[in-house]
Write a protein that binds this DNA or RNA. Structure first.
Lengths: 204, 204
DNA sequence: TAGATTGTTAATCGATTAACAATC
DNA sequence: TAGATTGTTAATCGATTAACAATC
């Protein structure tokens, strides 16, 4: 399977493998068989092997996988070996929560600035808050990798277009709307309501 | 296709249809063909028809779908015709953001109480903050549908177990850990880091 | 009626699972 | 060596797309 492009389905599982491998590494586990990864993440051992094999097998027959090696390999595939400068557009509840969220790797994801209509809002130490008018100015003078849109629905599309025009290629959208952007933009949507609906929908 | 169980893949798309139909309804659009839904959501018309047909066709040949009717039908399937009482466990950045988030339907999702170790935190009007020790007490005396876990990683599993023991069956987990819970619990995970990794991973 | 568009079946495509030879 | 476990191929399963008759 080496050399083939990795499917979206596999990529979506990589963060879970990664998180689990981090835990194992912390605990000092050195080797792990696919069967244990599988039971921890509630998938099949076959799928684990198929997934890991798709980007080049790092296991050893009879011994399983080297935790540290596999973790590093996945980090590399996910692009976690470098750091990313980020800005937040729309500093309401969601924007503020992200800026203060402790779950992100502090070294890998650096919140540089936030933009809002109201520039009097309180921001965490180290983060700068600018008027939303200043987006273009700021992006012309600062190298930013990822923009996070946390504006209300009505503002999101126009903000997104401004970001794209200013050279942003990776957008994380929290506004509850389908953004219409060029093909070359990498867009990730986090739809809070949709997640909640998965709980209100009763299976079976 | 009527009568068959609706697949997970279809269910995951329903919130997007729903959101789009809400927009159309607001604009006063009365009928819409599958082709237009498809282009708005960037899926195929065939898939839209297949999806909608899977829970009983509500379209009319030659005329498309009645927006209001379809919206109500999807709301019904997603369980949005009633309201849900919710509690938040762990009132840090994420918990506070959810409590203040304006994107949820205020009528359908009602945040009743929050629980934290620190009971001196500021909470929005109408929400009560209790010590985390009071969870069992509270749940014995209040009918709660959904519990949201926003604690740090280390506390999440034990909090989840306490919630389940106290009768909670629907859990929305924001803590960055795989919770191990009984089969009958409906669990929805929102993994912020995973979403971000989808942006750092470079396609193509 | 003619045109549009659904509902649904069949064909295709992709992803998951099973199986097992290779090998540590 | 014997046991364990991978890498990988083949089989299965499910989801998406295509096609078109039915019908508004």
């Amino acid at each position: 399977m080496k050399g083939k492009t990795i499917s979206e389905a596999v990529i979506r599982r990589l963060p879970r493998y990664f998180r689990y491998l981090e835990e194992l590494a912390e605990k000092g586990v050195e080797r792990i068989p696919s069967s244990r990864i599988a039971s921890a993440l509630r998938v099949t051992a076959s799928q684990v092997r198929q997934d890991l094999c798709s980007f080049g097998g790092f296991g050893q027959q009879g011994l399983g996988y080297n935790v540290e090696m596999l973790k590093n390999e996945i980090a590399d595939i996910l692009g976690l070996t470098r750091s990313y400068n980020m800005i937040i557009v729309g500093f309401g509840n969601v924007g503020a929560a992200l800026a203060g969220y402790m779950g992100f790797s502090k070294e890998a994801f650096i919140f540089k600035a936030a933009f809002d209509i109201d520039t009097d809002k309180v921001v965490p130490e180290g983060l700068k808050l600018y008027s939303i008018d200043k987006i273009e100015d700021y992006l012309a003078n600062n190298q930013i990798d990822i923009a996070v849109i946390c504006t209300p629905k009505a503002a999101a599309q126009s903000v997104a277009e401004r970001l794209v025009a200013a050279g942003i290629t990776k957008i994380w959208n929290f506004a509850p709307i389908e953004l219409d952007l060029p093909e070359n933009i990498t867009l990730e949507n986090t739809n809070m309501s949709a997640s909640l609906y998965m709980l209100t929908y009763s299976r079976r």
